[in-house]
Amino acid sequence: MNNSEKIKLGISIGDFNGIGIEIILKTFLDKRMLEFCTPIIFGSTKLVSAYKKSMNINTPFNGVKFVEKSLPGKLNIVNLWNDDIKVELGKQTKIAGNYAFLSLEAATDSLKKGEIDVLVTAPINKDNIQSEDFSFPGHTEYLDSKLEGESLMILMADKLRIGLITGHIPISEVSTTISPELIKQKVSIMHKTLVQDFAISKPKIAILGLNPHCGDKGVIGKEDDEIVRPTISEIQNEGKLVYGPYAADSFFGSGNYKNFDAILAMYHDQGLAPFKTLSFGEGVNYTAGLEKIRTSPDHGTAYELAGKELANINSFKEAVFSAIQISKTRKEYNTLTKNTLKKQRQK
């Protein structure tokens, strides 16, 4: 791969009191990673230099003022600020949240403009990042507000892909939020994603039930019979290979999940609890459905590990590789479908 073909991979630093900067630096300490992409961190050379010194991490980097000055074969840092910042590893501070937002905002803007090809986000703290400019439950909702498309959170590891029909909302609101329209919307996003981003021509999608035992014919709730089943039947009539609802308590333990290209869970913990049990530390969070590609590791700030040299870089590294691969697959899909449409017009 020559330099002109290398994907420009933007990185937001997340909460600098957590393990974000550590896993970024350690990932690109391996120079072979620079063969796959041109990494561009949105942050501060002064902050990263201080972090390198405190953690004794010798990853070299190239400081630049503008994204377009980034160099292939180097870990680049776009210098967004020159402030002297106190790093308090392992502590939740408001100042860390403020700078996490500045990094995310600049990286998202660059992604939207096409200055970078993909974005990988280091973990934020959903509490200390809150402000007038950021009033969202997480990255997914913020990116959904800034980019074209409709988002779907997908947690993935190898061939296991779990999407969420409802995301970061209280459990008390799940049952009233589930509707035929929402289920159809999320199935549509998942189906398109599997086709264009994972090159699966006829994806098989499983949908988990909302209630225990899918409601046991109304004994433990009527939503599965009155909303979920009829909606799945309608989607099947459209030609999509969608099945369910499946009782969530046995779906993963029985290994049934292996029969599908993706699973849609009704709510956050229904999907993420089994995912992290099966794949914690190796998984990737992918924001599907948007015009641009964003991935992240499957873990949080891990304050309890910050500064102790215990952080595992595998999930972040997988997030980098996933972003690169999805970008290539989507580009190939767009080229193929564009050529097909062109041929059809010529006939």
Rank of each mutant, 00 (worst) to 15 (best):
V64W: 04
K65A: 10
K65G: 12
K65V: 07
F66V: 07
F66H: 12
F66P: 09
V67L: 11
V67G: 06
E68D: 11
E68A: 14
E68Y: 15
K69Q: 12
S70V: 04
P72D: 05
P72A: 02
L75W: 07
L75Q: 01
L75R: 08
N76L: 02
I77P: 02
V78T: 01
L80S: 01
W81A: 00
N82M: 05
N82D: 10
N82E: 14
D84R: 10
D84E: 06
D84I: 13
I85P: 03
I85C: 05
K86P: 01
K86G: 07
V87C: 09
V87G: 00
V87Y: 03
E88M: 15
E88Q: 12
G90F: 07
K91V: 09
K91I: 02
K91S: 07
K91N: 08
T93N: 02
T93C: 07
K94Y: 04
K94I: 05
I95E: 07
I95V: 14
I95R: 12
I95M: 13
A96P: 00
N98C: 03
N98M: 09
F101C: 10
F101H: 09
L102K: 03
S103F: 01
L104M: 15
E105C: 04
E105G: 01
A106T: 01
A107F: 02
A107Y: 02
D109K: 11
S110Y: 00
S110D: 04
L111V: 03
K112W: 05
K112P: 15
K113Y: 11
K113I: 07
K113R: 08
G114I: 04
E115G: 04
E115Y: 10
E115C: 09
D117E: 02
D117C: 10
D117I: 12
V120E: 11
T121R: 14
T121L: 02
A122K: 10
P123M: 04
P123Y: 12
P123Q: 13
P123K: 14
I124L: 10
I124P: 01
N125K: 15
N125S: 10
K126T: 11
K126W: 13
K126Y: 12
K126N: 08
K126G: 11
D127P: 00
D127M: 04
D127S: 07
N128A: 05
N128K: 15
I129A: 13
I129N: 07
I129G: 08
S131Q: 08
E132T: 15
D133I: 03
F134G: 06
F134H: 10
F134L: 10
S135P: 00
F136H: 03
F136E: 15
P137I: 05
G138H: 05
H139F: 06
H139P: 05
Y142T: 03
Y142A: 02
L143N: 13
D144E: 15
S145Q: 04
K146V: 15
L147I: 12
E148A: 12
E148I: 08
E150M: 12
E150N: 13
L152Q: 11
L152P: 14
L152C: 10
M153D: 01
M153Y: 12
I154G: 08
L155N: 04
M156R: 12
M156A: 09
M156Q: 14
A157K: 06
A157I: 09
A157F: 07
D158W: 05
L160K: 06
L160R: 13
L160S: 09
L160N: 14
I162N: 14
I162K: 08
I162R: 10
I162T: 04
